[in-house]
Amino acid sequence: MEQLQVADWAISWLRGGVTYLDGGAMFGVVPRPLWSKKYEVNDKNQIELRTDPILIQTGEKNILIESGIGNNRFSEKQLRNYGITEESFLEEDLKKLGLTVDDIDIILMTHLHFDHVSGLAKEVDGKLEPVFKNAIIYTTEIEWNEMRNPNIRSKNTYWEQNWKPIYDQVKTFTSEKEIVPGITMYHTGGHSDGHAIIKIEHGGQTLLHLADLMPTHAHNHVLWVLAYDDYPMTSISQKEKWLMPGIEKENWFLFYHDAKYRAIKWSQTGELKDCVKRER
């Protein structure tokens, strides 16, 4: 299990599942000869995308970023279409840390697409129940509203079975929300209308989780955005706002989807300065 220590806070990556999606869709209009130099691709033009929640232990709160894809949440057709090769081992990884799902106090959902939210519910005796029964779940008001009332495009990723079990646990915000001192969520839009990012400031360090504005380290170019983005120009403007200043200030960047890196710190000139690699 990979970890990053930030003063007295521990950050751990938990195994939430693996998907393989079309590389062209993940890099939009960027030609394959360019992006394939930076990110491994298979002979089906698919790239590996982890769905690994990030656990922050502050000493007072256990805070989870995203939830993984869960277990037994997909049909055979969906498993095939989404290239799911592994489901969640989150509970096993929590056990290694001396925790259970009941010990999670807060969950930060940058958005509610199926590959981020499916781990929040599980089937028990034929009924869906919340996995993290004691947690408050934060997301943007826009995202929560669209989750429950998807449009013709977003209904393919916002599923009723993913929001109904957690309905009573969700709290929303509009522009920004300080969750606990040092951890703030900001609405950005772009990837989805309600998409948010997370900024962590602690022990003299700043860490950014740009979520699906920068799902992998290979997306560290302002113009490299996803064909999946609902509002690509918003993604670009938000990357201009957060990515380049973060690199210039040598902030840490945390990843949920990246198959190679858990976290990266680039130098002011854009060279790799420090990193946490995923254990293979």
Score class of each variant (00 low, 15 high):
Gly16Met: 05
Gly17Thr: 09
Val18Asp: 01
Thr19Cys: 12
Tyr20Gln: 13
Gly23Pro: 13
Gly23Trp: 08
Gly23Lys: 04
Gly24Val: 08
Gly24Arg: 06
Ala25Ser: 13
Met26Lys: 05
Phe27Asp: 13
Gly28Glu: 13
Val29Tyr: 11
Val29Lys: 12
Val30Ile: 15
Pro31Gly: 10
Arg32Lys: 15
Arg32Ile: 11
Arg32Phe: 09
Arg32Met: 14
Pro33Gln: 08
Leu34Trp: 10
Leu34Lys: 11
Leu34Arg: 09
Lys37Gln: 15
Lys37Thr: 14
Lys38Asn: 14
Lys38Tyr: 14
Lys38Thr: 13
Tyr39Trp: 04
Glu40Asp: 14
Val41Ala: 05
Asp43Leu: 04
Asp43Ser: 11
Lys44Glu: 15
Lys44Leu: 14
Asn45Cys: 05
Asn45Lys: 03
Asn45Val: 07
Asn45Tyr: 07
Ile47Phe: 06
Ile47Asn: 03
Arg50Leu: 07
Thr51Ala: 11
Asp52Ala: 00
Pro53Gly: 03
Pro53Ser: 02
Pro53His: 01
Pro53Gln: 01
Ile56Phe: 13
Ile56Leu: 14
Ile56Pro: 08
Thr58Cys: 10
Gly59Ala: 04
Lys61Phe: 13
Asn62Thr: 12
Ile63Gly: 05
Leu64Ile: 09
Ile65Met: 13
Gly68His: 00
Ile69Tyr: 03
Gly70Phe: 04
Asn71Glu: 13
Asn71Met: 04
Arg73Phe: 08
Phe74Ile: 06
Phe74His: 02
Ser75Arg: 01
